[in-house]
Design a protein around this nucleic acid. Structure first.
Lengths: 206, 206
DNA sequence: GTGCTTTCGCTACGGGTCGTAGCGTAATAC
DNA sequence: GTATTACGCTACGACCCGTAGCGAAAGCAC
């Protein structure tokens, strides 16, 4: 087992391999069992670690699942497809692809539900999942401005509100389509959606 | 205790009052405890019924919470505010108001998460919650067509897809704003959102 | 190498919830 | 009145929780 040395910390270091095994086992358990039937004892068994090891690193089921799901969003990137509309379509499709995975659907929704009663958990979700996607919106706008497709924002506050609105609309629509309506967010749907979104943003701009 | 007579069914009828008490107790428990810490034994205690009575009527936590939350959406109605845009704003505000209640937030999200692994549960959600809202979209479009604000749809399939898209965008954005971003879907936000949505729909229409 | 420190796997435990079974009683239809 | 069903209550085995205690292992400082 390879391990890191956390500088100034004596004693046996924590196994990084165990972390990875636990998170992978959590995702596997989410696929097979879903949120409610997932037990930490089972995760520990799948990961090949003792249950106590798991409790030493995570406070409970919520935190563990957040971290396990957050890793799925690492692959998000902003493709350069040449135009703002195409870029956005690309991101939405990536987001939809992640949400199409059962471990993401199961874990993310359940943990968001729990976060309505747990401020610390909500912050953890925002930091490790949501903000990571919001960067894509910012990057997309910057690139569109560089292309001349969008004017530089005049009012910073208004611009921030617009980013938040875009983000709620994109993430919300994809999530609702995938999870509640239980229909695939395929290319055709994404194309129609981004057309409405971009037309609306262009028309509603001052 | 008043009871109904389910026609051709002999024996003691089920207490309708017990149903109401159980569902109300479920909502109260959702507020105080949230989804994960809600136990059926506790709900039965709050409702003043035996735990066995609860199990005779609902298969489990999921089904119970769906029914408890579904009642919250009974109050949804389409206000006549004079224009399509104002009507939609009214509905979105009502929807946002319901989602602002903790029992709705907690229960709905958790149960949707569980539904990703349970087709029967998803159908129950769709029938008792989602379709009820979709009627509002249909009624709003019919009224706008009567007003002359929208042309009568030419292609039935295209019209149905548009309704689904609107629904995913409205419900998704409000849910995401309220639950994930944890910001209030107040009048200002709703106004900005509906402006983008309607502009986009108008511009994207063939 | 020798200590020192921290993590690891393992076992065991009390406490809580689950979902069901059994039984006597209450409420309605015929 | 009689049949039938729902109700409240108690009790039960099964499972999971989260923690404590132990000896062994793995790295650091010297």
């Amino acid at each position: 087992m390879q391990s890191r040395t956390p500088a100034g910390h004596a004693g046996r270091p924590r196994s990084a391999a165990a972390d990875a095994a636990i998170l992978a086992a959590t995702r596997a358990a989410l696929v097979e069992l879903g949120w409610s039937k997932l037990t930490l004892g089972d995760v520990a068994l799948r990961a090949g670690v003792a249950k106590t090891t798991l409790y030493r690193r995570w406070a409970g089921k919520n935190e563990l699942v957040v971290d396990a799901v957050a890793e799925l969003f690492d692959e998000l990137a902003l493709p350069d497809r040449g135009s703002l509309a195409a870029d956005i379509e690309g991101v939405v499709l990536q987001f939809a692809a992640i949400l199409a995975r059962p471990e993401a659907r199961n874990g993310l929704m359940a943990v968001v539900a729990e976060a309505t009663r747990d401020d610390a958990l909500r912050e953890r979700i925002r930091a490790s999942i949501v903000d990571r996607q919001k960067r894509l919106v910012l990057a997309g706008r910057a690139r569109a401005q560089a292309r001349g497709e969008l004017p530089p924002e005049s009012d910073a506050g208004e611009a921030a509100r617009t980013v938040d609105l875009i983000f709620d609309m994109v993430a919300g629509a994809v999530v609702h389509r995938t999870l509640v309506s239980a229909e695939p967010a395929d290319e055709e749907w994404v194309h129609g959606f981004t057309r409405v979104l971009l037309s609306g943003l262009a028309a509603a701009a001052p």
